[in-house]
Write a protein that binds this DNA or RNA. Structure first.
Lengths: 101, 101
DNA sequence: ATTACATATTGACAAATTTCTATTTGTGTG
DNA sequence: CACACAAATAGAAATTTGTCAATATGTAAT
């Protein structure tokens, strides 16, 4: 399962905005409906919808529709992928010195 | 050691750009000087300098000056912090249902 | 069907980001 | 000192992102 550089940026874009970080905090207690998230956030409904789209695109959050409502939750699978990608990208396999010495 | 939401976004901004993802790949073999990175990248020197600043600000990369040269490498400490933050933010402590049912 | 409600989409605008060229700063050498 | 080289900074242009008001879509209830 190889991710492109582009896909990697999409994952971490989820965490590049303070509002979205706050949304993660709200989701830590379990699944929440959009309306409940909206109450807790200082933004309009379209703005929240926009952020939720970015979060779902990242794979770190999953949405579930139930009647009129959208329920969002943190995805353990997405989380695991993100952690692995981060570990992979920052893994150092020290192989020799730089030439510029 | 508590990080603000703002600081968290700064960490993950490092990984929000394809060029910077590429730089991580280049640094995986160990420390590299800026001039060597520049050779491998498709951008100008000021652009690389800009990206390196963002990477250093994130704490995921550290720079070391030696004479005229700047040497950059992946920071194991910064990496560990980033992984911990990611784990922390995406940790679910399931405490009850949403009210909107 | 009509109404009410929850969410998504559209379009516009402001702010932030990326990129470049030109210039400056810092360091070593003849 | 004067020159060359590496890297950073300044400033401007192009692009992307975040935000909102307005509107559309989907769902349930009367």
């Amino acid at each position: 399962m190889e991710l492109t550089d582009k896909q990697i940026t999409v994952i971490f874009k989820a965490l590049c905005d303070e509002n979205r970080v706050q949304i993660f905090r709200l989701l830590q207690n379990g699944e929440k409906c959009a309306c409940k998230l909206l109450e807790a956030m200082q933004c309009t409904q379209p703005t929240l919808s926009h952020h939720m789209k970015i979060l779902c695109d990242s794979g770190l959050v999953v949405g579930r529709k139930e009647g009129k409502w959208m329920y969002y939750s943190i995805s353990p699978e997405g989380t695991e992928i993100a952690v692995n990608v981060l570990r992979e990208l920052t893994k150092v396999s020290d192989s020799g010195e730089c030439c510029c010495k």
